[in-house]
């Protein structure tokens, strides 16, 4: 988005947390130069000259660090005054509104968005994306979540006074394919899994908005020197043993750790993520 309204596209990023002070996921801006280049990231400052941090430790119902870390921000004019405002998600799964003051300036205060008297929330990882999903002229909020489910918070107000409805489930996260008790190989991942991050737009030009979704999952392959067949068979037995250990109540750290050490001789795993397109029918 053109955050500072200078005619050039900018990149706005959230972050997990700063390390130099109380935990807080600062927002960072990479200013576009209009030629496809960007400046190094700069901390987004609020109108008081301090880093913009959502939440407020002085209020009674402040949720602490989980409200201020793992941020993702989206910009859009929610109150119709011509300035870009921010909606910022967090680890807790709630969403804060920060009023824009024009040309990349933002209020130092924020407020938690509500629906019918309760905070808008997803099950962890608030991931706002502002988009007129229902085509009624005002901005709705889309969000991924830690579980991977994707939600819509429909704006039932108008372009000057947003009023959000409760979450509507747009997409249930995909479950990895389990064969012989284990998840194995690329073929097991058939759709968005966990920790989803969303973007929306009419990708195929059919007049209906689609979703672009990033996610996270663990890929499992044969350990070095093993064929896939042998690795699958041993991994399946390893998983059976793990289930037996848990069911027997043998959950001491030592026993579980030793069992996981044996897993490394059978499979190698990689925690990664991919990108999916969900075309609307």
């Amino acid at each position: 988005m053109d955050l500072d309204q200078d005619g050039d596209i900018d990149i706005l990023s959230g972050s997990y947390s700063r390390q130099s002070a109380d935990m807080a996921g600062l927002l960072q801006v990479l200013h576009g130069d209009g030629k496809g280049g960007f400046s190094p990231p700069e901390v987004l400052l609020a109108d008081d000259g301090e880093p913009l941090i959502i939440g407020n430790s002085e209020v009674e119902d402040d949720g602490g660090d989980v409200e201020r870390i793992c941020t993702r921000a989206a910009a859009g004019d929610l109150d119709g005054d011509g300035d870009l405002d921010l909606v910022v998600g967090n680890f807790e799964g709630t969403f804060y509104f920060v009023e824009g003051l024009g040309k990349g300036r933002f209020s130092a205060t924020s407020r938690k968005l509500q629906a019918e008297g309760k905070p808008l929330s997803v099950s962890g990882h608030g991931d706002p994306f502002l988009f007129d999903w229902d085509g009624d002229g005002d901005l709705d909020i889309l969000s991924g979540s830690a579980s991977g489910d994707v939600f819509l918070f429909e704006n039932r107000g108008d372009v000057h006074t947003p009023r959000f409805a409760k979450a509507k489930l747009l997409l249930k996260s995909a479950q990895p394919k389990v064969v012989d008790g284990v998840v194995f190989g690329e073929d097991a991942i058939t759709g968005p899994q966990s920790s989803t991050r969303v973007w929306a737009g009419d990708i195929n030009g059919d007049g209906k908005p689609d979703l672009l979704i990033g996610d996270m999952f663990t890929l499992t392959w044969p350990a070095k020197g093993l064929s896939e067949e042998v690795s699958r068979e041993r991994y399946s037995k390893w998983a059976d043993k793990l289930r037996a250990l848990v069911e027997s109540g043998e959950t001491s750290g030592e026993a579980i750790d030793a069992h996981y050490e044996r897993m490394k001789e059978i499979v190698r795993q990689e925690m990664t993520g991919g990108v999916w397109i969900l075309y609307q029918r």
Partner: peptide, 28 residues
């Protein structure tokens, strides 16, 4: 930690998706 849901209520869902809102996911 990020993959785990923190100790907060799950999303209060007003309604679920209509059946088959999307075609099967396409991996980029």
């Amino acid at each position: 930690l990020c993959a785990l849901s923190p100790q907060t209520p799950a999303a209060e869902v007003g309604e679920g998706p209509p059946p088959s809102l999307f075609r099967p996911a396409v991996a980029v």
